[in-house]
């Protein structure tokens, strides 16, 4: 929530003058996150888990939709097309196929949920690709990525807790969550060793 809120905040027209909108954010990753949250939270109206759960689902969908709108429409001029080039079809197709093959239940909602779990684990790739292409990440982008990466990393602790105390585990969510966290690891390394020391992340050219 902090990471997504940061992104909306930094892209919000009231908060910053248009030219200050942070560059270096991958619109493609933001679209993948929007698809992820919509596909996963379709049960928003049918399954009530808790006020917190529903509130966060609404927030995730609304904030990522707002980010996509602000980035690709309102501030289209500052969107960096040249560096945001990772082909998302190569991420979406395998996740869709895998969701059809490996799932808990062959029903539309469950397959969409599974697709969303797989997609989330690779949704950050366009962003990491863009950072490697631009060779650097703005500090605010680094904070956003750190928050986003630690979100799923913390879930791993929760899954361990639930395994030992509730004797419950969801292998699909766990495997995808571990893959997703691993994808952030090299970024976490850069974040800890550089950004937290006040330096900017500049990748070797």
């Amino acid at each position: 929530a902090a990471g997504i809120g940061l992104l909306v905040g930094m892209n919000c027209p009231k908060a910053v003058k248009p030219r200050d909108v942070i560059t270096g954010i991958s619109g493609r990753s933001q679209i993948l996150f929007l698809v992820t949250y919509v596909a996963r939270y379709l049960d928003l109206l049918t399954n009530f888990v808790s006020v917190y759960n529903t509130a966060m689902k609404v927030f995730f969908i609304a904030a990522s939709a707002a980010t996509v709108y602000l980035m690709l429409f309102k501030f289209k001029a500052t969107y960096d097309h040249n560096h945001d080039t990772l082909r998302v079809e190569f991420l979406i197709a395998p996740c869709a196929l895998l969701a059809l093959v490996v799932n808990h239940d062959f029903t539309p909602l469950e397959i969409l949920w599974t697709f969303s779990i797989y997609l989330e684990s690779v949704a950050i790739l366009p962003q990491l690709f863009m950072v490697s292409k631009t060779g650097e990440a703005e500090t605010i982008t680094s904070h956003y990525l750190f928050a986003l990466g630690s979100y799923r990393a913390l879930y791993i602790l929760n899954w361990i807790y639930r395994y030992y105390f509730d004797n419950f585990f969801d292998l699909i969510a766990i495997v995808a969550g571990v893959v997703q966290t691993v994808l952030y690891c090299d970024f976490f390394y850069l974040y800890i060793t550089k950004v937290l020391k006040g330096k900017k992340i500049v990748l070797p050219a």
Binding site: D43, V49, N53, K57, F60, D166, N167, D170
Partner: peptide, 10 residues
């Protein structure tokens, strides 16, 4: 425990 009826995580 059995099969999970619906997903209670984000």
């Amino acid at each position: 425990e059995g099969e999970q009826l619906f997903h209670d995580e984000l």
